[in-house]
Amino acid sequence: MKRRTLLASALVLTAGLFAAPAFAAFPEKPVTVICPWTAGGGTDVLLRALSKEAEKFLGQTINVVNQTGGAGAIGHNAIRTARPDGYTVGMITFELNSLPPQGLVPFTWKDFDPLMRINSDPAALTVKADAPYSTVRGFMDYAKAHPGEITIGNSAPGSVWHIAAGLAAEKTGVTVKHVPFDGAQPAVTALVGGHIKAVAVSVAEVRSQVQAKNLKILGVMSSERDKIFPDVPTFKEQGVDVQFYTWRGLALPKGVPAANKAKILDAYKKAFETKDFQEFAAKASLNLSYQDSAEFAKFLDQNFKDVSAVMKNLGLAKK
């Protein structure tokens, strides 16, 4: 009897040696979120505010890292090639759908795992406060009367704001010179300094300078007026039928375990719904436009097709 008891004990101890190890619950260390654009721009500001709220639900620090360059290509590629363990998330932007048609990157949105869309913002044609025009039509008339003088800054060749400016010029029949910058914020800074004549970026990215009376918005490329600047008419109200939006969302590299993905998504979804984030977005003039993973994937697919067609018409797509 004693021998049987000793044998049973030995078997239990031996089984314990070969049992699967207990893994710590995800996440057990800080999470990194990659931003493909410069600090201070609309994408960066939005991501930092959302991640700050998400930390409360994830139970870990979330570090936002800016990996810029290549019109967003470097940051997006860093997201795509990150280790698929859930510890690296990324904010994908409109440029993920505008870079492939130009043949500038070897990937498309399908090489990412979309988590959620956060917002969409229309372009706002903005100039210096002392510019000799106060309407879209006035700006375009000036451009026609001063060929070669108008320079419009954008956040890199083929970027969303380059396409927005190109559409506006095409619809009004004027010729402008497009000046690329590494993000919208440097372009806005150049406008304030008088180095360029205009930008066509989001309202959020010019809001503080407009409120400081350094810049003024001539029109927004949306179906409705902006809530922060309700006195600014839309392009359509001024006789120019142009609507154009950028968008931002979160994505993971392909292959992240479902359980880890679910925890990241849950934390950011709850963060999105917090009163603090909603109020922040409203004050920052960021138009929130949530889509879940499935809806976001469908949106990305259609947006890619639409953007490719627009870029082809503007001569920006690779032949």
Rank of each mutant, 00 (worst) to 15 (best):
residue 1 M to L: 12
residue 4 R to H: 11
residue 5 T to F: 15
residue 5 T to M: 10
residue 7 L to F: 13
residue 8 A to N: 04
residue 10 A to T: 12
residue 11 L to T: 13
residue 17 L to I: 10
residue 20 A to H: 12
residue 22 A to T: 14
residue 28 E to I: 01
residue 29 K to N: 09
residue 30 P to A: 07
residue 30 P to D: 11
residue 33 V to A: 14
residue 38 T to P: 06
residue 40 G to L: 07
residue 43 T to A: 11
residue 44 D to I: 02
residue 50 L to Q: 06
residue 52 K to W: 05
residue 53 E to K: 05
residue 55 E to C: 07
residue 57 F to N: 05
residue 60 Q to Y: 05
residue 61 T to M: 04
residue 62 I to S: 04
residue 63 N to Y: 07
residue 67 Q to F: 10
residue 68 T to D: 00
residue 69 G to E: 02
residue 70 G to K: 10
residue 74 I to C: 00
residue 75 G to H: 08
residue 76 H to K: 09
residue 79 I to W: 08
residue 84 P to A: 09
residue 84 P to V: 04
residue 85 D to Q: 07
residue 85 D to P: 13
residue 90 G to R: 09
residue 91 M to R: 07
residue 92 I to C: 04
residue 93 T to P: 02
residue 95 E to I: 11
residue 97 N to F: 08
residue 98 S to F: 12
residue 98 S to C: 11
residue 100 P to C: 13
residue 101 P to L: 07
residue 105 V to D: 08
residue 109 W to R: 10
residue 112 F to N: 10
residue 113 D to C: 07
residue 115 L to K: 06
residue 120 S to Y: 13
residue 130 D to S: 14
residue 131 A to K: 01
residue 136 V to G: 09
residue 138 G to L: 00
residue 142 Y to T: 01
residue 143 A to V: 06
residue 144 K to E: 02
residue 145 A to T: 02
residue 147 P to D: 04
residue 147 P to C: 06
residue 147 P to H: 06
residue 149 E to Q: 12
residue 150 I to V: 15
residue 152 I to G: 06
residue 153 G to H: 01
residue 156 A to S: 13
residue 160 V to D: 10
residue 161 W to I: 11
residue 162 H to R: 09
residue 164 A to F: 01
residue 164 A to E: 08
residue 165 A to V: 02
residue 168 A to S: 11
residue 170 E to W: 11
residue 179 V to P: 10
residue 181 F to S: 03
residue 182 D to R: 05
residue 184 A to E: 13
residue 185 Q to D: 13
residue 190 A to W: 04
residue 190 A to L: 03
residue 191 L to Q: 07
residue 191 L to E: 09
residue 194 G to N: 04
residue 194 G to W: 02
residue 201 V to D: 05
residue 203 V to C: 04
residue 203 V to L: 03
residue 206 V to Y: 00
residue 207 R to G: 00
residue 208 S to N: 15
residue 208 S to W: 02
residue 209 Q to W: 03
residue 209 Q to I: 01
residue 212 A to N: 12
residue 213 K to D: 13
residue 217 I to H: 03
residue 219 G to P: 01
residue 219 G to D: 00
residue 224 E to C: 00
residue 224 E to V: 00
residue 225 R to N: 02
residue 232 V to C: 01
residue 236 K to E: 12
residue 236 K to G: 04
residue 237 E to W: 00
residue 241 D to A: 13
residue 241 D to P: 06
residue 241 D to E: 13
residue 242 V to E: 05
residue 243 Q to G: 13
residue 245 Y to H: 14
residue 247 W to H: 12
residue 253 P to M: 11
residue 256 V to E: 09
residue 260 N to D: 10
residue 269 K to G: 10
residue 285 S to R: 02
residue 287 N to I: 06
residue 288 L to I: 01
residue 290 Y to E: 09
residue 294 A to P: 08
residue 294 A to F: 12
residue 294 A to I: 06
residue 296 F to D: 02
residue 297 A to E: 15
residue 300 L to G: 08
residue 300 L to W: 09
residue 300 L to K: 08
residue 301 D to L: 13
residue 303 N to L: 08
residue 311 M to R: 00
residue 313 N to A: 11
residue 317 A to R: 04
residue 318 K to N: 11
